[in-house]
Design a protein around this nucleic acid. Sequence first.
DNA 1: AAGTGGTCTAGACCACGAA
DNA 2: TCGTGGTCTAGACCACTTA
Lengths: 244, 244
Amino acid sequence: MSETSKPLYRKVVDSLKHDIEGKIYAPGNLLPTEDELIKYFDTSRTTIRSAIGILEREGYVVRKQGKGTIIKDPKSAQNLNYLSSFTDSLTEKGIIVETSLLSISKINAPSRVIEELKISEAEKVYWIQRTRVADGIPIAYVNNYILARVVPGLEKRQDQLKHLGLYQLLESEYDLKLHCAVDTINVYLSGPLEAEMLQLPETIPLFHNRRTTWLEDGTPFEHVLSIIRGDMHQYKVYLENRKH
Amino acid sequence: MSETSKPLYRKVVDSLKHDIEGKIYAPGNLLPTEDELIKYFDTSRTTIRSAIGILEREGYVVRKQGKGTIIKDPKSAQNLNYLSSFTDSLTEKGIIVETSLLSISKINAPSRVIEELKISEAEKVYWIQRTRVADGIPIAYVNNYILARVVPGLEKRQDQLKHLGLYQLLESEYDLKLHCAVDTINVYLSGPLEAEMLQLPETIPLFHNRRTTWLEDGTPFEHVLSIIRGDMHQYKVYLENRKH
DNA sequence: AAGTGGTCTAGACCACGAA
DNA sequence: TCGTGGTCTAGACCACTTA
């Protein structure tokens, strides 16, 4: 069993998390004191404190010196530091979102992409054009520009792109670990080009989103430009307070 | 000096952070080993490890068992999990943003606020109406609804509200610690009411932002509805990859 | 095999909050 | 004053990486 090989502090974390989620420890109440947990789990203070530290960082509890460890509502522990994608927010509503691949090709990076990814002009990128369609309505037009050298042979994987999401493909097939991203969200009014692309009957507001994504080693490896129907989409941003 | 009262592990964190930011420890290289740091700072392993743990969570280093502690590029350590406010993004551009208080009053919470803050109908909230003005142009209309019981006497602090930001006031005068927030961002076209409020010469796209803010103990204590000129604002969302 | 970080122990004293 | 969490010590052994 992997259970037996798990470090002790991890077992304590999982056990306490389970009890908090199962409301055995009710929100607002105090967790047993550290001394009690030491006796209960038959371990040292270091181990217990390391476990509680993890629970605190994940938002399950708050420690107050002199008072105790307060149990928080587990609902509020979820989904922090997270921008929901538009696919997420629509599928939550029960709408089926399909993605159709328009084209994929290896090109010289456009100047804006050169700038964002901090690459040379000679560097090649894969340009992926896709649309997102919800209940038959095109709601977004998405351009990904991905460093060609980190995803060699991507154009041969078109079929997989239809079944897997792009990010799942990057992770499973290329073993790329995304570290962080910056989204810049603007809004503007649709013009004739957008009306054509998204089959808009009239002028509507559109989201204009630029995202740059970094790998774990700090390389910016992807830039994404998305145009999204403003009347069919909303962003939800879950934020944790900055500690500094 | 508060320097002397700082816990040891905090001093170690600050010292190492300073050296990483000053490129004394270059990105990509290894930090001195734990044993070396123990000797250098003349302290125990626990203290050194607790300091390195903080640096790792803040994105300054990555620990690899058997190998060492790798120093990351400090640029990538900044600004994660963070939604820049519109004041931020404009002041970055050198534009001075003023906030003018329209009104502040204690009212029964509107139904949407009751719902978002999960309060009873009898519960009172402070309703603060403000506009943000950049270079003489009104760019946003902001409604805060704050639980009256957590900020007693807020209406008497109107003067302070003009100098301090609202959140600074909450922190310094009421000792409230914000824990997290959820922003929901939509977009729509301005109508006559918005044209009046923001002195718009024509129909333009507007951001429509609802934010709920939680205190550290898990109480939702504030709901904010903002209407922001789409042509004068952009959101920047800094995201860290989820670890789970 | 040697050296690194990962886990863990059994203590100690301090700082804060509540009674 | 007492009980809580906060900091810290001086060890021990384990797991992983590299040579």
